[in-house]
């Protein structure tokens, strides 16, 4: 490398240091709750259902609606059929065990408007019944079967709620927090053994 080149590189480096560029990464800026949509949703729900039992807040990425299980069918039908909401795509159904009753979380997307919403349905303790969404979205079928086998939900109205990923005759719910990690007696028929892994 000649001295000229070194000088040029030096000046270039100096310029770059003098003008630091803003970070390009946009993850922090994108996939965030849409405030405009939040207002539309709040207004629509207030208008249709005065004194509604829904509360609306935000997660890191989505607008989040808390909904009791008995109002889920009404709310999802509204989300799907109102023109200003138009949620035509159910992306995900996920069970969560908060150790004070089960919670089922739904994510929807609207291809028309490009906005998303999250529904958090908290079941009371000792009750695992949630209305099934298979009548509204065909894709709900396998998602609900998975949540049912992993957490023990009962989706009322589901046509075929047998195990999907686990063996068909296995009646355990592995993703409950009370279920130990890889307990050997279930798989191997040993009565009492210590758990296999301890991280």
């Amino acid at each position: 490398m000649t001295s000229e080149e070194q000088q040029q590189e030096g000046t270039q480096d100096g310029q770059q240091e003098a003008k630091p560029q803003a970070p390009l990464a946009t993850l922090a800026a994108t996939q965030r709750p849409n405030q405009e949509f939040k207002k539309t949703l709040t207004d629509t729900l207030d208008k249709l259902f005065p004194n509604s039992p829904f509360t609306i807040d935000e997660t890191t990425t989505d607008v989040n609606v808390h909904c009791p299980p008995e109002h889920l069918s009404w709310l999802v039908t509204t989300l799907k059929e109102r023109k200003e909401l138009a949620f035509d795509y159910l992306r995900n159904v996920s069970g969560v065990d908060y150790e004070e009753g089960l919670t089922c979380v739904y994510h929807f997307y609207s291809f028309k408007h490009g906005h998303t919403v999250q529904l958090t349905v908290k079941c009371p303790p000792d009750n695992v019944h949630i209305p099934s969404l298979t009548g509204l979205y065909a894709t709900a079928s396998w998602h609900e079967r998975e949540a049912a086998e992993m957490f023990g939900f009962v989706f009322d109205g589901h046509p075929n709620l047998k195990n999907l990923l686990l063996e068909e005759d296995l009646d355990i719910h592995p993703l409950l927090k009370a279920h130990p990690l890889q307990k050997p007696e279930i798989l191997q028929g040993i009565e009492d053994g210590t758990p296999g892994f301890d991280f």
Binding site: L24, A25, T26, L27, T30, Q31, D88, Y89, L90, R91, F111, G114, T116, Y137, A138, T139
Partner: peptide, 29 residues
Amino acid sequence: INWGLTGPMLRATGLKWDIRRAEPYSIYP
């Protein structure tokens, strides 16, 4: 959309939807 198809399966139907554009992440924009 009703069946939950995404990616190339959904784009084959003629719907122009790619998460790299619709809800971008990383430096895709």
